[in-house]
Design a protein around this nucleic acid. Structure first.
Lengths: 117, 117
DNA sequence: CTGTATCCCGTCCGATACTG
DNA sequence: CAGTATCGGACGGGATACAG
């Protein structure tokens, strides 16, 4: 499974996850159905354009459903599909990794130490 | 675990994975120690600047080690640390997701159908 | 062989104003 | 309320030449 074919298997997922706000957006949706304005407030200061872009992408990929409730005022709900909920084990694996190796992520700690000499 | 703290737990990993070439680079290293030129050939047409950037980042994060073998010609080897090898379950989870839900990722299939419609 | 230094371009994203 | 349209800036990454 860790062979040459794996990058091709993994890349489509990365195309979803690696854009700005996408993680926060997904986690928000993991916790239940959300409306557009609700997401906008929670992800503040995301721009409406960007939020729409993200939601449309997730829709395209079959990860969320968009439900329109006609009437005034307009009312739209976004909800994860089974496919979207299925992403959770991936985040669980990331969470586990951080617990295990998170201490290694010092990054600038080293640089500061070097500066001090 | 899927609560509000999780994005913060996951983001540091995404900072590593979400840059161009990083997936291919990691998979190459999963298969063993590699030299700079070797990576450059395998990831062709990556630019040397970008390859260096990626390797430096991985080094900073403690995910790879860089070993210099002095002499002419110069010889450098990159190898995953235990921490780097620990990333594999994450990719395994992604792989599983694609097996399970990969069929949902049609994206442009829908667009084409719409065009025909 | 293993990088670094420069320059440049495309893309992503934010800000803002506007519409059904 | 839930978006769309438009513009512009920042930044990631490519090409290329050069250095240790």
């Amino acid at each position: 499974m860790m062979d040459r074919s794996c990058p091709g298997t993994v890349e489509p997922i990365m195309e979803i996850l690696d854009s700005k706000w996408m993680l926060l957006l997904l986690f928000e949706l993991f916790n239940g159905t959300r409306r557009f304005g609700e997401l906008r407030r929670k992800l503040h200061p995301i721009s409406p354009k960007t939020l729409t872009d993200r939601l449309r992408l997730l829709e395209e990929k079959g990860i969320v459903t968009r439900t329109l409730y006609p009437g005034v005022p307009l009312h739209v709900e976004y909800e994860l599909t089974e496919c979207g909920l299925g992403l959770q084990p991936i985040f669980a694996a990331m969470w586990t990794w951080t617990q295990e190796y998170g201490g290694h992520l010092r990054k600038d700690a080293d640089e500061r130490q070097e500066a001090k000499g």
